Simulated assay, not measured.
Amino acid sequence: MTLQKKKILFFIATLAQGGAERLISELSFKLQDFEIVIVISENKVSYPYKGRLVVLDVPFPKNFFLKIYCYFVRFLKLRKVLQAEKPDYMVSFGAFAHVTNVVLNRDVFLHTDMFYSKARNDFWGFVLKAFARFFYNRAQKIIPVSFSSAQDLVRNYGIQRQKIQVIYNPVDIEKIQRLCQAPLNQRFVDIFSHPVVITMGRLMRQKGQLHLIRAFKRFKEAVPDAKLVVLGEGELKGALEKLVRDLGVESDVYFLGWQDNPFPFLRASQFFVLSSLYEGLPTVLLEAMATGLPVISTDCKSGPREILAPGTDINKEAKDMEIAECGILVPVEEEETLARAMIALAKDPALRSSLIEKARERAEDFRMERVIEDWKLLFGYGRVEDTKL
């Protein structure tokens, strides 16, 4: 007699472009002992998945009243799905998904991939933070992606320590190494005949690309033949393109959009820069490291310090350029310091070589197989030991 697999239901806004979306994609393939159902609000899918996909067909409008209306429609549709599916475990990804999930069911898991105290400060940011403070303790488990963000939830939002289980984002190293071998499209070869600084992520204020472009302008004075490649799409694209024109570097900055396989672009670059204002745990940083790139990152909350300087206090913040064990950390929004770090890395082959080796070694700590075991323990009501909170 074959035992019936337990069912996991993942709930997220879309399955397009993003770290949490990529994680669900990976989990759907790797959690082979479970039946997987993925529920999305909007029919936007960029990542492959295994299991069944349920689309609620409810958008996220900008209008205040439509937003409230769509929340209730989403609530009712999701409730109907839960009644039909009867999942053993339900995991929501993203603050707006949590709002629906926790109200519907106490026996849920909330995957949080941002540092709440640094996240959006508009009206909806205030609402989501208030919701976290008053409702997250209803959940069975809260799953932050870094110890720093977990500490923030406990100290500043009153989340019960026993509710917290940190699980890092995984990196599929073998898959990345395989994808790296794909040839670079011929129309991009000329760009990568120059020293290329590369970044990857949604084009939005949080990712800090405005600061990176200004830093790149300074960097060009020291490395005149350098190019900047930006992978990703987003609402800030027009503003970023205007800034590039205003700075006179339009022939040196390339917006190459969303790439199904970004790894040949990473492999062909000299180094990677993460310029974010805040994060949860930046998977793109780990992917660049696994590709064999030296990396520079802002020391934002949270994640980069835990990745690049694992032996340091997670509460420490870089005050200047900090050559850490596995990469370079710089203060958030400090363009002059970021430019200096870029120049230092470009001009010092020995430093690049050292950081490449350390980056590859550190990426192994986030290997997919290790993280999948943490998820299996979670669903088996086991506990992964952690001591950093």
Results as ranks from 00 to 15, higher is better:
334 E>F: 02
42 E>T: 06
10 F>H: 15
173 I>G: 00
321 M>C: 13
299 D>P: 01
41 S>D: 00
92 S>M: 04
320 D>M: 02
85 E>H: 10
58 V>E: 10
290 A>Y: 01
26 E>W: 00
166 V>F: 04
154 V>C: 07
154 V>A: 07
376 K>L: 11
379 F>L: 11
306 E>P: 01
106 R>H: 12
342 M>C: 10
345 L>E: 02
259 Q>W: 02
263 F>D: 00
274 L>G: 02
77 K>W: 08
228 L>K: 05
239 A>Y: 09
76 L>W: 12
203 L>E: 13
14 T>K: 10
22 R>S: 14
104 L>A: 08
329 L>D: 06
196 V>P: 00
336 E>N: 14
370 R>H: 07
60 F>N: 08
220 K>C: 10
360 R>K: 15
323 I>S: 07
312 T>G: 00
214 R>A: 04
105 N>M: 11
12 I>G: 00
115 F>A: 08
207 K>R: 14
6 K>W: 08
258 W>Y: 15
180 C>L: 09
131 F>G: 08
22 R>M: 07
307 I>H: 06
157 Y>K: 00
162 Q>R: 13
108 V>K: 01
187 R>I: 09
379 F>H: 09
275 S>N: 12
351 L>K: 06
237 K>D: 15
121 N>C: 03
321 M>P: 00
96 F>Y: 11
227 K>V: 00
158 G>D: 09
5 K>E: 04
263 F>E: 00
306 E>C: 03
158 G>S: 09
277 L>E: 15
231 L>Y: 14
51 G>H: 07
27 L>K: 11
290 A>S: 13
112 T>L: 13
34 F>N: 02
122 D>A: 07
195 P>W: 01
